[in-house]
Amino acid sequence: MTTTSDSSLLPLKAMQLPDAPSWLPLAWGWWASAGVILVVILSVILIIKLRKKRMAPKKAALRLIQNENRPAAAIELVRQAALCYFPREEIAQLTGAGWYQFLDQQIASPLFVNNADEWQAVLYSKTPVSNSQQLIEHCYQWVDEALPPKKRSKNIG
């Protein structure tokens, strides 16, 4: 009879597992994801900076008009703010009724054509006008609503 002995078993070494996979070097998909995230973050920062730069003249004009107590100075600030956003060739030549019509075309409700006589009195006479605070508020409202100008479709006709 045969006896079983331990010698009949194969001499096996202990199991040795491979090292756990490392995060580095990253696969190309991770690099692509990181690149997309970086581009999105940089784009958002650029858009915010451009918007801030575009809105700077409007904010300055609103701040200055709010501190102004003379309508003639307020309408001059409106003209300077308009020059920041509209072509100089279009704005610089406008005076009187043409200027007031331009201002009213940029907003929904007219504020300047209806008060053209008061504006002319404020600009060219030394006597104070009774509704000067209202005229200054109209300037503030125009800058707040009209600037920066909205893109409008051109009428082809």
Score class of each variant (00 low, 15 high):
residue 47 I to E: 06
residue 133 Q to V: 12
residue 89 E to S: 13
residue 74 A to E: 00
residue 106 Q to V: 01
residue 7 S to P: 00
residue 101 Q to A: 10
residue 66 Q to R: 13
residue 64 L to Y: 01
residue 9 L to I: 12
residue 56 A to S: 10
residue 73 A to M: 11
residue 95 T to H: 08
residue 64 L to R: 00
residue 114 N to F: 04
residue 97 A to W: 07
residue 123 L to N: 05
residue 9 L to C: 09
residue 100 Y to E: 01
residue 75 I to C: 02
residue 88 R to I: 00
residue 54 R to M: 11
residue 112 F to R: 04
residue 113 V to M: 07
residue 52 K to S: 12
residue 120 Q to H: 15
residue 3 T to F: 11
residue 22 S to W: 04
residue 151 K to D: 05
residue 141 Q to A: 10
residue 119 W to Y: 15
residue 11 P to L: 13
residue 49 K to N: 14
residue 96 G to I: 03
residue 151 K to L: 07
residue 38 L to D: 06
residue 149 P to R: 01
residue 113 V to Y: 04
residue 133 Q to I: 14
residue 122 V to M: 05
residue 112 F to S: 02
residue 117 D to V: 13
residue 120 Q to R: 14
residue 80 Q to S: 14
residue 108 A to I: 06
residue 102 F to C: 02
residue 97 A to S: 12
residue 135 L to Q: 00
residue 146 A to S: 04
residue 95 T to F: 06
residue 38 L to P: 02
residue 68 E to H: 06
residue 144 D to P: 01
residue 149 P to E: 02
residue 68 E to A: 12
residue 41 I to F: 14
residue 81 A to D: 01
residue 152 R to L: 15
residue 59 K to A: 07
residue 85 Y to I: 03
residue 46 L to K: 14
residue 41 I to C: 12
residue 136 I to C: 01
residue 88 R to E: 10
residue 131 N to I: 10
residue 140 Y to K: 06
residue 138 H to P: 03
residue 132 S to K: 07
residue 131 N to E: 09
residue 82 A to D: 01
residue 108 A to Y: 05
residue 12 L to Q: 10
residue 45 I to W: 09
residue 25 P to G: 12
residue 151 K to Y: 07
residue 2 T to E: 12
residue 73 A to K: 09
residue 117 D to I: 14
residue 132 S to N: 09
residue 86 F to E: 01
residue 38 L to Q: 08
residue 96 G to Y: 03
residue 92 A to T: 05
residue 44 V to H: 05
residue 101 Q to W: 03
residue 76 E to P: 02
